[in-house]
Amino acid sequence: MRSQFLWWALRACRGGHGHDQVHRALRIAAALELIQICALVHDDLMDASRLRRGRPTLHADITTQYAAAHRPGACEPLGAAAALLGGGLALAWADDTIAHLELPPDVGRRVRDIWTAMRTEMAAGQYLDLHAQATGSMSLSEAIRIAYLKSGLYSVERPLALGAALAGADETATRALRAAGRSAGIAFQLRDDLHGAFGDPGQTGKPSGDDIREGKLTSLVAVARARVVADDDKASLAVLDGCVGSVDLTPADLAAVRHILVITGARSAVETKIARLVTHSMHHLTSANLEPSAGRRLHGLVCAAAGTPAPIGSSTSRPTEEAGPPPPSPGGTAEVDRW
């Protein structure tokens, strides 16, 4: 996905036709895939996740392989250390790929500035995610900030900006693409939050409810908690406080949490927010003077990232800003109502 956002941004800004530019785009795309590997390996290690895309995570795989032939007690530290090194190596290879690129001076400066910022943002987002888990934060604004830093920026906005930089796009087109990517990137993470709570393991490749077990600060849980507090619903609050972050979560506990996420309107509020973010993203794409066919590909990618249906008819038509007012909040806080 990140490579496609890079490529179609380049084409949308009328680049990607010469051999040198195509070669550079492919190299940066490879670097994006490597930094994604680093992020996934380290994220799985920090979260102690055993599955990723239906297969064992790196630390779990190494632990299992060596436990069969060696001392089982010594294999857990080996798996963790190997994953730490493997993720670091992927990051180093990504940096090497960028460093060895031969780019025109102005393009090189823009690409390296974006790349440097992206690395820092990823680390900051991951730290804030862990910090929120450790402190038990339930702030919606913090949940959105984590979504933006940890996932939205490097998944959508920065790849689009890299494509624009490679094409030598002007400031107006770059700003429009970045704004589109910002909205689409947050929508992508909000969809992931929904998958984490309600997703089918056969589709997501991870056990259902992992975010709830790990006590992740997600917009979904933050909205639900704010609403049960505002409604003085002590029974629902006790379920959330007792189950979110519980490693011993039973299927019945998970079902109870899901029920609260639905009856408080949190699930539908997140779906509504995703739809609005996609609309905003489309608006920004339409406002840019993009090459039409590549612009349509970007519209489709935004919908795919957000998990929403592709627009019907011409994807270059200007979308309406809102489909109507949001449903009334069942007693949410001011922060939730503004959201």
Rank of each mutant, 00 (worst) to 15 (best):
P207T: 06
A252D: 15
T120D: 10
P292A: 07
A235I: 10
R145S: 08
L51S: 09
L160G: 03
Y154S: 06
G125K: 03
D61I: 00
D193L: 07
A256M: 06
T135D: 06
S219V: 00
G54Y: 03
T174L: 03
G307A: 07
V221R: 04
G245M: 08
C243N: 01
V41H: 04
A39Q: 10
A180K: 01
L149S: 02
M122V: 10
S317D: 10
G265D: 05
I28L: 15
H280F: 07
R52M: 01
S317W: 04
L190D: 02
L285E: 12
M282D: 13
G108V: 05
S155P: 03
H100M: 09
R24Y: 01
T172D: 13
I62P: 06
A25K: 04
A306H: 02
R158T: 00
R227D: 00
A31W: 05
Y66E: 09
P72A: 01
A143M: 07
G87H: 05
D210H: 05
A134P: 03
A294S: 15
A83I: 05
M122L: 14
Q133A: 06
T272Q: 15
T204R: 07
L10W: 02
L240D: 02
A288G: 13
E142Y: 02
L261M: 06
G185N: 10
A235L: 11
H283D: 14
E335P: 00
G86A: 12
S246Y: 00
A48K: 04
A94M: 07
A80Y: 04
A81R: 12
A68G: 12
W93I: 11
L194M: 11
I274H: 04
H259Y: 08
G245R: 04
R55Q: 12
E171Q: 11
A269V: 00
I274L: 05
